[in-house]
Computed example of a mutant assay.
Amino acid sequence: MAEVVLVHSFRGGTGKSNTTANLATTIARTGKRVAVIDTDIQSPGIHVLFGMEQVDSQTTLNQYLWGNCSVEEVAHDVSPDEVKQNGGKVFLLPSSSDAGDITRILHEGYDVRLLKKGFASLIKTLTLDYVFVDSHPGLNEETLLCIAVANTLIVILRPDRQDFQGTAVMVDLAQKLKVPRILMVVNRVMQNSDPEMVRQQLEAKYEVPVVGVLPNCDEMMQLASSDLFSLRYPDHSLTQIYHQVADKVMTT
Results as ranks from 00 to 15, higher is better:
69 C>S: 11
71 V>N: 01
73 E>L: 11
73 E>D: 14
74 V>H: 06
75 A>M: 12
75 A>K: 07
77 D>N: 15
77 D>R: 06
79 S>M: 08
79 S>R: 08
80 P>I: 09
80 P>W: 08
81 D>I: 13
83 V>G: 00
84 K>A: 05
84 K>G: 01
86 N>I: 00
86 N>S: 09
87 G>V: 08
87 G>L: 04
88 G>H: 00
88 G>W: 01
92 L>T: 02
92 L>W: 02
93 L>N: 00
94 P>T: 02
94 P>R: 05
94 P>S: 07
95 S>E: 04
96 S>Y: 09
97 S>P: 00
97 S>Q: 11
98 D>N: 14
99 A>H: 10
99 A>E: 12
99 A>P: 15
100 G>V: 09
101 D>E: 15
101 D>V: 10
102 I>H: 02
102 I>K: 12
102 I>E: 03
102 I>L: 04
105 I>K: 06
105 I>F: 14
105 I>E: 08
105 I>N: 08
106 L>D: 13
106 L>R: 14
106 L>F: 10
106 L>M: 14
107 H>Q: 15
108 E>L: 13
108 E>T: 13
111 D>S: 10
117 K>C: 00
117 K>M: 02
119 F>R: 03
119 F>H: 04
119 F>A: 00
119 F>K: 04
121 S>M: 02
121 S>Q: 09
122 L>F: 03
122 L>V: 03
122 L>N: 02
123 I>W: 00
123 I>N: 00
123 I>D: 02
125 T>N: 07
128 L>R: 09
129 D>H: 10
130 Y>T: 01
130 Y>M: 04
133 V>W: 04
133 V>L: 08
134 D>W: 05
135 S>G: 00
135 S>E: 01
135 S>W: 01
135 S>V: 00
135 S>L: 02
136 H>M: 02
136 H>S: 06
137 P>G: 01
137 P>S: 01
137 P>A: 05
140 N>W: 07
143 T>P: 01
143 T>E: 09
144 L>K: 14
145 L>M: 15
146 C>N: 15
146 C>M: 15
147 I>L: 15
150 A>S: 15
150 A>G: 04
150 A>F: 04
151 N>V: 03
151 N>C: 05
151 N>A: 10
151 N>E: 14
154 I>C: 02
155 V>W: 04
155 V>N: 10
156 I>L: 15
156 I>F: 07
156 I>Q: 05
156 I>S: 03
157 L>K: 11
158 R>D: 08
160 D>G: 13
164 F>T: 15
165 Q>D: 11
167 T>K: 09
167 T>V: 14
168 A>E: 13
169 V>A: 11
170 M>S: 12
171 V>M: 09
172 D>N: 12
172 D>Y: 06
174 A>D: 08
174 A>I: 05
177 L>A: 11
178 K>G: 02
178 K>D: 12
179 V>H: 06
181 R>F: 07
181 R>S: 13
182 I>K: 05
183 L>G: 02
183 L>C: 11
183 L>Y: 09
183 L>S: 07
183 L>V: 10
184 M>E: 07
184 M>Q: 11
185 V>S: 05
185 V>F: 05
186 V>Q: 05
186 V>Y: 04
187 N>P: 10
187 N>A: 07
189 V>K: 07
190 M>S: 14
194 D>V: 06
194 D>W: 06
196 E>W: 08
199 R>M: 11
199 R>C: 12
199 R>F: 03
